[in-house]
């Protein structure tokens, strides 16, 4: 085992030790498919720097944070109901067990906010990919309780590991593995087919402009500031 694999395995064990034993074994299995990648354990904090608590994550609000890299956006959602583990099967035959929600109600989930179709993501100017709460369905697809990208109408189900419900995406959104520890929340890894390579490849110029260099955009984070999408993005485009 080389150093990288060793660290990866340790990371996996660290994640898994916080989870149910059956989920642990399944997560390990999913790692064999290359579906689980562990990164630095990062504390989710509020804008004032204090750790975010369950009560701060209001049901059906769309929150954004950046993980595992300084520039890769994720959505944090409290779906206000127990979100159970789901087995995700991909079209290429691979699959993984998505572990469901965390928190006292197991209602809190997080996903990469980079669309798995053609990599639209929330910028400070626009977000085309957004969460539609149950009381505010999409005008176009009429669906609610979903994450939808308005560019090509990819629709994902956050209750089911961001499975594709409709539209052209071939794979679910990658999910962010969350861990709760003494009432604090940590992001510890990414599960599923992440789109980070394509993201960094396609947005080189944009990322250089925003972060100063590609290297800075790719820095691993140790803390994730969580804020409401409406605060981060000037124009939230819903459809």
């Amino acid at each position: 085992m080389d150093r990288r694999d060793f660290i990866k395995t340790c990371g996996t064990v660290a994640v898994a030790s916080m989870l149910d034993a059956s989920i642990f074994s399944n997560l390990l299995a999913s790692q064999q498919d290359g579906m689980l990648k562990t990164y630095k354990k990062a504390l989710l904090v509020k804008e004032d720097g204090s750790p975010i608590k369950e009560g701060d994550i209001k049901p059906h609000n769309n929150y954004i944070f950046f993980y595992p890299f300084a520039s890769t956006p994720c959505y944090l959602l409290n779906l206000d109901q127990e979100i159970k583990p789901v087995e995700i099967k991909l079209k290429d035959g691979l699959g993984y067990l998505w572990p469901g929600g965390v928190g006292s109600k197991k209602s809190i989930v997080a996903y990469s906010a980079i669309c798995a179709h053609q990599w639209s993501y929330p910028t400070k100017d626009y977000s085309f990919i957004n969460y539609y709460p149950p009381d505010k369905p999409s005008e176009t697809t009429k669906k609610a309780g979903i994450i939808q990208c308005c560019a090509h109408l990819g629709v994902y189900d956050p209750k089911e590991g961001a499975k594709v419900l409709d539209g052209p995406p071939e794979v679910p959104l990658a999910s962010i593995v969350l861990q709760e520890e003494n009432g604090q929340f940590y992001a510890v890894g990414v599960l599923g087919k992440d789109q980070f390579d394509q993201f960094f490849d396609n947005y080189k110029a944009d990322l250089r402009q925003q972060y100063g260099s590609t290297a800075k955009a790719k820095e691993l984070v140790e803390k994730c500031i969580v804020m409401e999408v409406d605060k981060y993005v000037k124009s939230v485009i819903r459809c």
Binding site: Q118, Y126, F128, A151, S235, I237
Partner: peptide
Amino acid sequence: KRYEEWARGL
């Protein structure tokens, strides 16, 4: 805006 993003995605 969606139109532009639609094209950029392609």
